[in-house]
Design a protein around this nucleic acid. Structure first.
Length: 294
DNA sequence: TACCAGGAGAGCG
DNA sequence: CGCTCTCATGGT
């Protein structure tokens, strides 16, 4: 039973694109709605005429947990205005109006992306689903609904053992997840405090964790803390940068990072998400000729 | 069957 | 530093 619901102004917010764009892995589409768990709360979302309708199963006096997660107060037009004026960037933005960045829980984001390496998004979703099902705590869901759990804490994952993690189909990533969970649970890294550091210092902290390299660190910096200089370069973004900006010569990863750091402006993280979405949803023949209407 | 997936880490010159 | 190989697993 739905106890609380509320509508929020959300102009230029593409909820579906945002929730399926490979930054969060627990959202499910159910009959015109998106259902998920934020922290320990079940929530259902729907967009209609520049508004987002939210429903919950527990009384909600303050919806800040949701508006913060969805970044509803952010003015997207101001972000897009800072993007470079080049054909590839224009093409990427035109392909997906209203794509946003979420502001996720640092531990869930970190753990999810440790599981993401050389996995397809659909598989990451499956692994995360198993992880929650087996080790998370139950959350209240509407009556008759499939049971749902919270994302398991670092302390919980640190104690279940590598074998149990491997049974969630995460393969060699189990060792990384267990080791990082132990460090987080032992407070050897302060995830809650990273957001107050300069981005370079925060990245340096994340890079100390097993299974966390530059790409995953940048995902956490961007998707959990909102650090805009973070520019995750995965296989898709690498393809985008090489094909759209350096089609005639080989450019290695460190040079791509240096290019991105200066070319995409103060909201490079957002620009990255548009390039990622563009490459994933556009056929390569079209992406090779940006600036052209499909 | 061969190749790929929102990579990291170790070993090498 | 910059390159190559391996690490599980499932999808195409």
């Amino acid at each position: 039973m739905i106890i609380a619901s509320k509508s929020f102004p959300a102009p230029d917010y593409n909820l579906t694109a945002t929730l399926t764009s490979g930054q969060a892995f627990r959202w499910r589409e159910q009959a015109e709605h998106w259902e998920g768990v934020i922290g320990s709360r079940w929530v259902r979302l729907r967009t209609k005429s520049d508004q987002i309708f939210a429903s919950a199963v527990e009384p909600v006096s303050d919806w800040a947990w949701l508006t913060h997660y969805l970044q509803l107060e952010l003015n997207l037009a101001e972000i897009l205005a800072t993007f470079p004026e080049d054909a590839p960037m224009r093409a990427a933005v035109n392909t997906c109006h209203g794509l946003r960045l979420l502001r996720q829980d640092p531990w869930e984001c970190l753990a999810s992306f440790i599981l993401s390496s050389t996995k397809q998004i659909i598989q990451i979703r499956q692994i995360v689903s198993l992880l929650c099902e087996r080790f998370g705590n139950p959350v209240n869901v509407p009556e008759g609904r499939h049971p749902l759990n919270s994302f398991p804490s670092a302390a919980r994952l640190a104690e279940v053992g590598e074998a149990a993690l491997r049974e969630c189909k995460m393969g060699f990533r189990a060792r990384y997840l267990e080791a990082t969970a132990r460090r987080v649970a032992a407070s050897e890294i302060d995830l809650a405090g990273l957001g107050k550091l300069p981005v370079e210092a925060a990245r340096e902290q994340l890079l100390q964790l097993p299974g966390v390299g530059r790409k995953i660190a940048d995902c956490v910096l961007l998707f959990a803390y909102g650090f805009q200089p973070a520019f995750p370069v995965d296989v898709w973004v690498m393809k985008a940068l090489r094909r759209l900006y350096f089609p005639r010569r080989h450019v290695n990863l460190p040079r791509l990072h240096r290019f991105a750091a200066t070319h995409f402006g103060p909201n490079a993280g957002y620009a990255q998400q548009y390039l990622f979405h563009y490459m994933r949803t556009t056929r390569s023949s079209e992406a090779a000729t940006p600036g052209r209407k499909p």
